[in-house]
């Protein structure tokens, strides 16, 4: 049954086979996507026509590789910018929120904590539409009362940032809180007895201690933002992010350039993930 007990051969073998099958199931779609990025063909499908880098480097006009595909490159850049701002914003606010719920006592703390967790259970699509509606209401209000047109209230880059920020901050809070729970408060008190103000103590002592968790949370926030689809779908304006842009291409018939983008994404995220894992290992 478990390692320490004698197990029958058929039991061990069938379990091993199951695990192999499971991992094949996990990796098959990714592996096939990557392999077909190098196929010398105009469609992302078999048969194998030989190895080619066309879908990465070809300048067109027949095959446009990803490095020459302006539209896709632009959406990658948009996603980078979005993820950058979301990561910074949500890390700052999420860290504040972790301090608030771990170290402060105040009335209605329980209810506010519950509210902070709410984005975990609100479907992303609902977050997107409610923000779209509220932004629209606010935009109409400003236009009718003051006669000014506020760009941020229309589907746009910043509305996407706000939409993603609204739920990613909850994840940052949870990650930073988990580390803050292990913090020995007497360190902060010692700093204050030695004359530091509370802010100084937090800045020089607590935040130093939290650094690995904060960096890890920022990396997770960056990735979550980079890949977000559901919330972004309703808030996106004239600058589509990469997932939205890819979705439109996949839906309307695809070329292997999507495979090459996928390959880049898979390698990029794997590196970031391993990096993050390495850091969180060091932390323990």
């Amino acid at each position: 049954m478990i390692r320490s007990l004698p197990n029958s051969k058929p039991y061990t073998w069938s379990f091993n086979l199951f695990i192999i099958a499971y991992f094949t199931f996990l990796f098959a779609p990714l592996a096939v996507t990557c392999i077909l990025a190098f196929n010398d063909s105009n469609f992302p499908s078999m048969p194998w026509n030989g190895f080619s880098l066309d879908w990465f480097t070809s300048p067109g006009p027949e095959r446009v590789g990803i490095f020459h595909d302006d539209q896709n490159l632009r959406s990658i850049w948009t996603s980078f910018q979005t993820a950058f701002y979301v990561a910074i914003l949500s890390t700052v606010v999420g860290t504040c929120s972790a301090f608030l719920f771990e170290q402060e006592e105040f009335p209605f703390k329980k209810s506010l904590y519950f509210l902070m967790l709410a984005p975990l259970v609100i479907p992303g699509v609902i977050l997107g539409i409610s923000l779209l509606l509220a932004a629209n209401t606010a935009g109409t209000f400003f236009e009718e009362s003051f006669g000014i047109d506020v760009g941020i209230f229309r589907p746009s880059f910043w509305l996407v940032v706000l939409g993603q920020f609204s739920f990613i901050t909850t994840f940052v809070t949870l990650v930073v809180s988990a580390r803050l729970k292990k913090f020995d408060n007497s360190l902060e008190e010692a700093a204050m007895i030695l004359g530091a103000t509370r802010l100084e103590a937090i800045w020089f002592v607590t935040l130093r201690y939290l650094r690995p968790a904060v960096i890890g949370a920022a990396a997770v926030a960056f990735l979550m933002s980079f890949e977000n689809f559901n919330t972004t779908l309703f808030l996106v304006g004239s600058e589509p992010t990469l997932p939205i842009n890819l979705y439109l291409q996949v839906r309307d018939g695809s070329t292997p350039v999507i495979n090459s983008i996928s390959l880049l994404l898979i390698s990029g995220t794997s590196i970031l993930a391993l990096f993050n894992l390495y850091f969180s290992k060091k932390e323990d």
Binding site: I19, F23, L26, F27, A28, P29, L30, V32, T33, L36, F43, P44, S45, M46, L223, F226, E227, F229, L242, P243, L246, Y247, V250, S254, I258, N259, S262, L265, I266, T269, S270, L272, A273, L274, L277
Partner: peptide, 29 residues
């Protein structure tokens, strides 16, 4: 194994779905 288990989920959902589409569609693998 744990790392291997987590890796695919760092990749965008769209890429994973696209992979299944390439595998399963009529002209698929």
């Amino acid at each position: 194994l744990t790392v291997l288990l987590l890796l695919p989920f760092w990749v965008s959902e769209l890429v994973r779905v696209y992979g299944w589409m390439i595998l399963l569609r009529e002209s698929g693998v």
